[in-house]
Amino acid sequence: MAVVLPAPCLQRAQGTIPASAGIGLRAEHYHEVAETRPTVGWFEAHSENYFGGGGTPLRVLESLRADYPVSLHGVGMSLGSVDPLDERHLTRLKALIMRIEPGLVSEHLSWGSYGGCFHNDLLPLPYTEEALDHFVGRLTRVQEFLGQRLLIENPSSYLEFAHSSLPEWEFLAEATRRSGAGILLDLNNLYVSCRNHRWDTHEYLRGLAGGPIEELHLAGHSQRPMEHGDLLIDTHDGPVCREVWALYVEALTAFGPKPTLIEWDARLPPLAELLVEARTADRHLEARSHALAG
């Protein structure tokens, strides 16, 4: 079905991402979102899907930006890589930032390329002092180039390096402290990685106390039986599970109400189902705000 959009609009919604629930903008929902303008606090878009020069994706995003704050979430910058920074990638992101005027811009605590070959994945870093220095240097240069503070998201991971000397939360806290970046705390990733590596979720959250948490992500995952117990896979293909909702409440108590994204990428449900998840997050956010006010 063709997407019919109004002419580009010069008036825009204010850009700040509110401490309410947002949903990911997915191509499968372009038509419905453009037609129905659902009641939701904000949208998050995967930056690289808008790296083209024009066409439907950018039209949809620009048209939504007239009515909603938008956050840009990157997946391909390969911030932790030892490859040179990809200037073309950064130039395209900068152009997109200028075009969309996002409220937040985020990337991952990960790497994705070696020798110029990209894995199309968010790969785990060894949490060493060397990697920390490298990551902080890159992040600082990127923020300078973009003229934009970034939020850094904790990844889901399926292996740990024996030479890591810092816990992930300490690495994340230190990298953002030294670069002035913020933290996008993905509670599903936190849960998946903690289960896979037998880390303690409470210790992880305590380790970020006082840190610059600016956004939270919630998503669904899958559980796969392996030889020695289950492995959790960050599949983004279902509703947020009970344990992650519980972590969410714990995080809201620790960090206060924060913009919260419902992420869903595979086996996408109808838009209405995403909005139900968003309303659940909103109820938790309101409860936390009332508790703070009272």
Binding site: N120, L123, L159, E160, F161, M226, E227, I233
Partner: peptide, 28 residues
């Protein structure tokens, strides 16, 4: 040698990443 087994062999762990790259790019 630099990947912790922790209940699952390093080969299986790396295999998951290898699969994800090949399957994801095939899907693209």
């Amino acid at each position: 040698p630099w990947i912790r087994a922790n209940g699952l062999s390093p080969e299986r762990r790396l295999g998951l990443y290898r699969n994800n790259t090949f399957l994801g790019l095939s899907e693209a």
